[in-house]
Design a protein around this nucleic acid. Structure first.
Lengths: 212, 212
DNA sequence: TTGCAAATCACCGTTTTCTGGGATGCAACC
DNA sequence: GGTTGCATCCCAGAAAACGGTGATTTGCAA
């Protein structure tokens, strides 16, 4: 029996969801909440498997609630729910500790699938959500070809050392090459990334996701 | 009927997986690959629903393959597979365009669940993987207060200029202060962020989200 | 009012980076 | 068999960063 809590400030939505979920034999809704504080109280009081949490709630919102809940009750699985297929919402609530995210316009099937998947500790993101998150990931890493492909393995290695704060001499010792060689790599890196000095080099390396 | 491609450089593993998957009536393994190039060739030749891809392959590895595949055949769903529950692996392959990630030590059930979930375009991360990713997310935004609050406005301003590649002298002109002052700010920045030189300074500034 | 922290400026010697050369061996590709 | 890219090594002068120390002004808060 999976024990659920529903949290949404629209009572009618909660009622609908509740009736829908209780058609399932192995699900039971043990509590409802209109805001974050009520969710935390419910979870403090009795063992809960999954909290289905609207992101947009008055007072303590879904993100904050998730963060606090993940800290106080790490075993409770959190399913984020929202009308908006918004990259920042998705990313924020996942970072805060939610295991899944679905949109309110997705069907019953998707919701049930999310619940059962979360119940075993895995992650579920519905189709549209996956797409949004991926496309933003892809955008975040634009033309790798611009520079990434132009850097040799050795150059990348030296680049990392430079960013880590090692001097040319230290890098030479670390990689068992002469400091002159390291200087050459450094020169080539500056040229390839069009940077004026090490500071800008590290900056551009970050922006082009060559490090971290 | 879901059309699969299996990619792993260990033939025995591929064979085992294949026999396991073909017990399922609605799955068919239409190709096998030992490296990234073979995967791309297979997907160029015929329509594929899901590629199950080992991350650690000789030659073109799983990450690169995913990136290229996502570009050439966006409709193909990619399930990352690896022995290692490594945050960087997981995050890299998801950023590259994979929809799911499971570990080789997970059972048949989890694999099948992943396949069916991916097939409808949703995301699947197995339990351990979710935990790893979450714990790293949680760690990724720790004490911003540690340093952020300690930097003065002026220091932040100088920091940005340094990261942009301006020299001390140039920054002085830009901010209408003496280059000596800029040097002092630079020194204080190095001290406060515990960096050994500008390169590490910019690096740490990024990691602590002080810039960009 | 006292005290502290931030911002400003200064000096100076040492270390490191930056710049712009030149050079060789090796492997892959055409 | 030639070209190209990579890694390796060398040099030397100019520019910048680094490290230490000290000082003044200003503004805010205890």
């Amino acid at each position: 029996m999976i024990r659920l809590v529903l949290a949404d400030d629209h009572q009618m939505f909660v009622d609908g969801l509740k009736s829908l979920l209780e058609d399932e034999k192995d699900l039971v809704v043990v509590g409802e909440a209109k805001n974050g504080h009520e969710v935390l109280e419910l979870c403090d009081r009795e063992p809960i498997d999954i909290v289905i949490l609207d992101i947009n709630m008055p007072g303590m919102d879904g993100i904050q609630t998730t963060r606090e809940l993940a800290k106080r009750h790490p075993s409770v699985k959190i399913l984020g729910l929202s009308m908006y297929n918004d990259r920042d919402y998705i990313s924020d609530i996942l970072k805060a500790g939610a295991l899944g995210y679905i949109l309110k316009n997705t069907g019953k099937d998707s919701l049930l699938k999310a619940i059962y998947t979360l119940n075993e500790g895995s992650t579920y993101l519905s189709e549209e959500v996956s797409k949004t998150l991926l496309s933003s990931f892809m955008k975040a890493a634009p033309e790798q070809h611009s520079a990434e492909e132009k850097l040799s393995d050795r150059e990348r290695e030296v680049l990392e050392c430079i960013a880590s704060g090692f001097t040319t001499h230290e890098i030479g010792e670390k990689l068992f090459i002469s400091k002159n060689t390291v200087e050459t790599h450094r020169k080539n890196l500056l040229y390839k990334l069009k940077a004026r000095n090490t500071a800008e080099l590290v900056n551009k390396a970050y922006k082009q996701r060559l490090i971290q």
